[in-house]
Amino acid sequence: MSLLAVENLSVSYDRIRALHGISFTVEEGEIVCIIGANGAGKSTTLRAVSRLVKAEPGSRLRFADKDLLAYGPDRVVSELGISHVPEGRRLFENLTVLENLRLATFARRDTERIEADLRRMFRLFPRLEERRNQKAGTMSGGEQQMLAVARAYMSGRRLMLLDEPSMGLAPLLMMSLFDALRELNAEGTTILLVEQNARLALQFARRGYVMENGRLVLAGEARGLLENPEVRRAYLGG
């Protein structure tokens, strides 16, 4: 049984189809990526899993053998443990670093585990602890991306959906962010990553899907996709 099983998922915005019946799976403990050009439908896919956009009739989404469509967006997070790092980070810039992290635990009652998770995040990203009482909006882009990941982890760590975490980061920062994500994955967090930076994503993930115009057109081991001539031509610059 897959942790996440998406079958025939279709989504429309104002009657314009953005996803045309896509199917994919994510196994427990995996790192899976979806690569594709601008407007391919990558973010829409993550929004559908988070229940922020409506899946059309006929779509089937299952998570840990539960019907995902029976859950509202907040319960997807608080009851199923699916967290989402949105495109462009979207931090609450008027709240402090610590408040951003605490807000993510709004529905959690496991106080001791919350404190342990908080310590874990501060160990992973020491900068966040140094700046915990600073307004999130006053941090650098790299620090903000760390906070976005840490905030998502605090809200739920069974499956983490990441929407273009590399956007706007210098190569060195990007590397250390992906190292941190790999650590979290080793501790049991399953990761579904969406990226325009195909090389980075395919080096990081175990399996990958290629999305074009709202359809998944290729799937396979990430290493295989890196070697695939079509993928190389279209996404890796030859």
């Binding site: 988070s50 907040d74 319960r75 967290s83 949105p86 810039e93 635990t105 809200s155």
Partner: peptide
């Protein structure tokens, strides 16, 4: 501050 993101916090 940002209405749309709040459900992602489990709120």
């Amino acid at each position: 501050f940002d209405y749309a993101v709040v459900p992602l916090m489990g709120v």
